[in-house]
Design a protein around this nucleic acid. Structure first.
Length: 580
RNA sequence: GGGCCCGUAGCUCAGACGGAUAGAGCAGGGGAUUUCUAAUCCCCAGGUCGGAGGUUCGAGUCCUCCCGGGCCCGCCA
């Protein structure tokens, strides 16, 4: 709707003043009594035309009021306000009923190849709430951008290289030793575990699985343990275990690979149960295996952008906007996480993505300048990469914050929350705030199934409409889905009906906004607003029981509202129940 | 110490490339049920937009300083 008005304003400006208008806004006015939409174009033209905004607005309003799509166009203190005509609104509504959800679709993205990398949690433990938030936000963004014509690739970057993976192996091995009362025989392992190990209960579970598969063989001989692991029927595929070289690998490494397979399987399962899937699971190891990290360093070195200092290799990021230089290769010869990250993004670029969007945990804030700096060094423009941050989620239960500490292994997992409140509630609540601000998740409220709960408020609107359709079917023995209701639209006369129609039609503007601003939390607000308008209408106007023509007209309206709710809910991955 | 984010109604938050009388939900008070689901609706009350300056025709929005809360600042991942 905004676009339509914008076009009209544009040509009106050209007709009236013979100039191309500057970038102007078409927005909802502060007070809805002023109209459906408004533009500030007169303020922006005032300077060039040397006229005051009120006069410009007046002229434009006069010109535009001839347009039959508007019932009223008024100039108020420099703004031009538009009220759509009922004919126009009904015409649009008809279009919506004919095209269904396609009415909302528009090719904003023009097939632009966009990669969306999100979650990318380390495979060293289960997903926690912050990861879940990233997963929900990323999934919603992917759904919406795909809907609006972007060619989206969803990608999960697996940090399967480096010390953390080694520590996962150490932790599993240590817990395994404990199960066999042998931990005292491995003081080095014990010390490492105490200092840096993963202390969560899930590691004990992994160790139990390991022991079940290999018995005490891992104490004796790595080769035998490896054979037993290979033969054991685990639910997961042995992608990493398959890479183990029994002639070289040690016990900890075997544990690491086993842990990776198990953890990645768990993570995938958690995400799948939330309805979230990825197109690509990208392995950090593969960057090393394919020599991409080396090649990247070579490329940068040839450009003279690296130097050796204190036995380490540094990148001159400070010349490109970072506040200091960063290490690529440590003095012990191993690479930093930063090094593989550059290689990864370079690889994304080489794969031909025109735009890359990363969702990172908020604690990675400091990484943005250095990654952007390194991309610039590789000749990649700064706005090619967009990074959005996901802030932490705090859990509240019984009015108290549930304290979480990863170090102590004491945290609430995404799975636990999902099992407690359901995937719909998790998804919806994670989208009730901008992703870069901290979120408080009140478990009690979401479980209450009361009016305070916005998830139910919105879903209930859908269920109510379904109820009306059921009732109609029973009483009239006709399938409302198959009836041609469009001829009855003309019977819609009530003020409340047009208020609702406007909400349904303007919902598209909200969705486009989300795709452009990359801000999926706006959808939940639009849905709550739409549901509220519907509930209000429902409480004041009856559908079944009204005179037939009116009933069928209203049924058509509800069908449109239902379509709108379904689109909105689908795009955030929340179900639209028929009954509650 | 340096950098960034936040501070809006009792509570949780929307609103920010400057634009109209600053919004919603919850909590509080008052009302609606011969019903297509009351998991709903209607009405009322509630504000120095953290504070002080500045820019502007116009500031919750931009700039400076201050106060309060949080995050980041490794040859960690």
């Amino acid at each position: 709707m905004k676009e339509k008005v914008k076009e009209k304003v544009k040509s009106a400006v050209i007709d009236a003043f013979g100039v191309e208008p500057p970038q102007f806004k078409v927005e909802k006015p502060k007070d809805e009594n002023l109209g459906d939409l408004a533009t500030n174009v007169a303020f922006l033209l005032a300077k060039n035309l040397r006229k005051n905004p009120a006069d410009i607005a007046g002229e434009l309003a006069q010109l535009l009021s001839r347009d039959p799509d508007f019932e009223k166009v008024s100039a108020v203190r420099g703004f031009v306000n538009f009220t759509f005509s009922r004919d126009f609104l009904l015409q649009e509504l008809k279009d919506l009923l004919l095209r269904g959800q396609e009415y909302y679709r528009e090719d904003v993205g023009k097939g632009k190849r966009v990669q969306l990398e999100f979650v990318s949690a380390n495979p060293t433990g289960p997903l926690h709430l912050g990861h879940g938030r990233g997963a929900v936000v990323g999934d919603a963004l992917a759904r919406i951008m795909s809907f609006f014509g972007f060619d989206i690739t969803r990608e999960y970057y697996i940090n399967d290289a480096g010390r953390q993976v080694y520590m996962l192996g150490v932790s599993i091995f240590y817990r395994y030793l404990q199960l066999l009362n042998k931990e005292k025989e491995y003081p080095d392992i014990e010390k490492l575990f105490e200092e840096e190990g993963y202390k969560g209960e899930y590691v004990v579970e992994l160790a139990k699985e390991l022991k079940e598969a290999v018995g005490d063989a891992l104490l004796e001989d790595v080769r035998i343990a490896f054979e037993k692991l290979t033969e054991h029927p685990f639910p997961f595929s042995k992608n990493y275990l398959g890479k183990f070289d029994p002639t070289k690998g040690d016990k900890v490494e075997l544990c690491s690979l086993f842990g990776l397979d198990a953890m990645i399987w768990e993570i995938k399962k958690d995400l799948e149960d939330m309805g979230i899937e990825f197109d690509v699971w990208f392995s950090e190891r593969s960057l090393y295996e394919q020599g991409l990290v080396e090649k990247m360093i070579q490329t940068l070195s040839e450009k003279g952008l690296t130097y050796e200092k204190d036995g380490a290799l540094w990148l001159k990021t400070s010349d490109f906007g970072d506040d200091k230089d960063r290490v690529l290769r440590k003095s012990d010869g191993s690479y930093t996480y930063f090094a593989s990250d550059i290689a990864y993004h370079w690889n994304k670029f080489q794969r031909g993505f025109e735009k890359v969007i990363d969702l990172w945990g908020a604690d990675h804030y400091g990484y943005i300048p250095r990654v952007k700096a390194s991309l610039k060094m590789l000749g990649i423009s700064e706005d090619w990469l967009e990074v959005y941050l996901i802030q932490i989620v705090k859990l509240f239960k019984g009015g108290e914050e549930v304290k979480m500490s990863k170090r102590a292994g004491n945290f609430v997992t995404l799975r636990e929350l999902m099992e407690e409140v359901g995937s719909d509630a998790v998804r919806f609540v994670f989208l009730t705030k901008r992703s870069d601000t901290p979120l408080d998740f009140n478990v009690d409220l979401v479980k209450e199934k009361s009016s305070e709960n916005p998830v139910f408020y919105v879903q209930y609107a859908h269920a109510r409409i379904s109820g009306v359709f059921r009732e109609f079917r029973e009483r009239f023995s006709k399938d409302p889905e198959k009836e041609d209701l469009i001829p009855y639209l003309k019977n819609l006369k009530e003020e409340a009906e047009f208020k609702l129609i406007k909400k349904v039609l303007m919902f598209k503007d909200e969705l486009v906004d989300v795709a452009v601003k990359r801000d999926p939390h706006l959808i939940t607000y639009a849905l709550i607003d739409l549901a509220g308008t519907f509930h209000s209408y429902y409480n004041h106007h009856r559908v079944i029981g009204s005179e037939e023509g009116i009933m069928l007209g209203r049924l058509a309206l509800l069908k449109a509202v239902r379509e709108c709710l379904r689109v909105g809910l689908k795009l955030i991955g929340v179900s639209a129940p028929e009954k509650m």
